[in-house]
Amino acid sequence: MSTLQITDLQVSVDTEDGPKEILKGVTLTIDSGETHAIMGPNGSGKSTLAYSIAGHPKYTITGGSVTLDGEDVLAMSVDERARAGLFLAMQYPVEVPGVSVANFLRTAKTAIDGEAPKLRTWVKDVNGALEKLNLDSSFSARSVNEGFSGGEKKRHEIAQLELLDPKVAILDETDSGLDIDALKVVSEGVNRFREREGKGVLLITHYTRILRYIQPDRVHVFVDGKVAESGGPELADKLEAEGYESYLGASV
């Protein structure tokens, strides 16, 4: 049983014109076994929320708190957050030339677990995870994200999710840029993760399309740096029909 608790989170970034407030008091509780979808228009601060929780140095926390099972996440370094059980599937995964996927995955797994995985089972696990995401075995010899297609990058992120097995996964627009087949493969990966005991998912998306494959427990509409409305899965249907316009009108 684990809980990611975000309370009144306020975040700013440095711009040429001084600090700019992006998150204006975000409160969310993700309990294990729950999937929360955060939906919102471009520029509403969805990705800022994801990267702030992961600890990207670009963002300055100006108020509020984030805890994982009561532990202060904001006091942790980036890698400590990951070792504590947080995982961020990135919208734009970064290329690391010369570092093979195999080396990267083993290094990450060793760091997360505090010990090197047993070689025999690990190779099987990696090949299995890649195969389930339609990535062939030559994939593990390639450099991390280098020359990957958009779909391969996203599938590689989800392979990491399954192998690193965090407590809470934050998926930042994992669905963007995917064709329908890739979207299904990625969604199946996320659903396999959700079926495991006690996992929480924070699914950030611009589109309702992915919610046909990943059924959320809660849907939050994110506008102008805060949650404008929360509800059950039916809220996604409303957004599908009406779009974000009513929220944008209200916020002006």
Binding site: A54, G55, H56, P57, S77, V78, D79, R81, A82, R83, F87, L88, M90, P93, V94, V96, P97, G98, V99, N103, F104, T107, A108, A111, I112, S143, V144, Q160, L164
Partner: peptide, 21 residues
């Protein structure tokens, strides 16, 4: 940031990037 977000320490991340370089 990418490597550290996977739990790899700052020092180990630098070593990995250099290794790859």
């Amino acid at each position: 940031f990418y490597l550290r977000s996977r739990g790899v320490s700052d020092e180990e991340s630098r070593r990995l990037v250099l290794h790859g370089f």
